[in-house]
Design a protein around this nucleic acid. Structure first.
Lengths: 205, 205
DNA sequence: GTCTATAATCAGATAGAC
DNA sequence: GTCTATCTGATTATAGAC
């Protein structure tokens, strides 16, 4: 695996980076489509158009492939957080993050990892970039949650972690797929509906 | 596989039924613990204490094993629906069903099946008992949802299916595991918290 | 029906030439 | 680094004796 922090990347190194990006893109797509267990390394190699052995020169294991995809997701998430204007109220900021997450899932761009798989857990926790990215995103979201609660916009009875987990869970919410399969809603409508159930609840107000 | 509708079961048939129940129990537990892909037929046989080949005399494939477990779940769900008193208001009835589902998950009794696995889908849809059970549960819940909406207890803007999917999704909500891993909440508190986010939403009221 | 033993297949990972 | 070809182990499923 090539470090992406090379100060002066040569042409060869750039080509390598491009290839690794292609690999990660393929992994991301297959992970979103089939999940970790059902994604085969053969399929990844086929999608990238290289030999399986070449994959293993870049990433030492299937778990590391998935971890690399998650690092990329964390990078995109951080970029999105950066893109939210600072003058937007905290609650609305949280809504936008959830909407962004759900849209990514609807577009088949959200990897789906089993939280039980022990080898995968080790690979993720052993990946400093992933851990740092997740910590950064969590810390920033927790700040927004606290701010929203201070404004009385989020129910104060929920510990910040409860809110955080509930937001994260939208990234693997099967309701999105169910509604998509029903075929009667556009993606925008689905996002809007799940956003409403998530923040306003099922009960009438 | 032995039909459970035998009008006059002999001793031998009863023993067979007991064994199949034991198999289904083991499958249910392993499915809840590891998910479908990570559950091996060897592990099932080992847990039941019989040879793997014997398993295949009862169920022709791994998919059929999972389907049998889901039939059992549907049976338990129908029994629970029956147990809810008729004079309980519809919204409270829905809350109890969700609470029951989440408690089953927290107790490691809720099988986790990948909705993508095509062979599994075929096995499930080819199982008349499962399809009938799912349809029955869905129809009854839909009735309760409509009643709750008629009373103004559930937001009328949600189509019944949206509500139904949202309730079903609690059976595989990762928030439950996250909170359980945090270790600061009892199971009762977890159920109460997720029930609150589900019906009342994250936003303050 | 249950068992032991084995087939058949598939997927993760590697060897070694170029 | 990339390739072809292969190894290794795990897993689903079955044969055949009892």
């Amino acid at each position: 695996m090539v470090t992406s922090a090379a100060p002066k990347a040569s042409f060869k190194e750039k080509m390598l980076q491009v290839r690794e990006d292609a690999i990660i893109l393929a992994v991301n797509r297959l992970l979103a489509e089939k999940g970790f267990e059902a994604m085969t390394v053969d399929a990844v190699a086929a999608e990238v158009g290289i030999a399986k052995a070449s994959l293993y020169k870049h990433f030492p294991s299937k778990e590391d492939l998935a971890a690399a995809a998650m690092v990329a997701v964390m990078g995109r998430a951080q970029a999105f957080l950066d893109s939210v204007p600072g003058d937007v109220p905290p609650l609305e900021r949280l809504r936008r993050v959830v909407a962004w997450t759900m849209r990514a899932k609807l577009d088949g761009e959200m990897p789906f990892l089993p939280s039980q798989h022990s080898g995968l857990r080790r690979a993720l926790l052993g990946n400093a970039q992933y851990v740092a990215g997740l910590a950064n995103v969590s810390a920033r979201l927790t700040g927004w949650i606290a701010a929203a609660q201070a404004q009385g916009a989020i129910h104060p009875g929920f510990a910040p972690n409860v809110v955080l987990y509930t937001l994260y869970a939208r990234a693997c919410d099967p309701v999105l797929e169910f509604l998509q399969m029903d075929g009667v809603y556009s993606d925008d409508e689905i996002v809007s509906l799940v956003l409403a159930t998530c923040f306003n609840g099922l009960a009438a107000r």
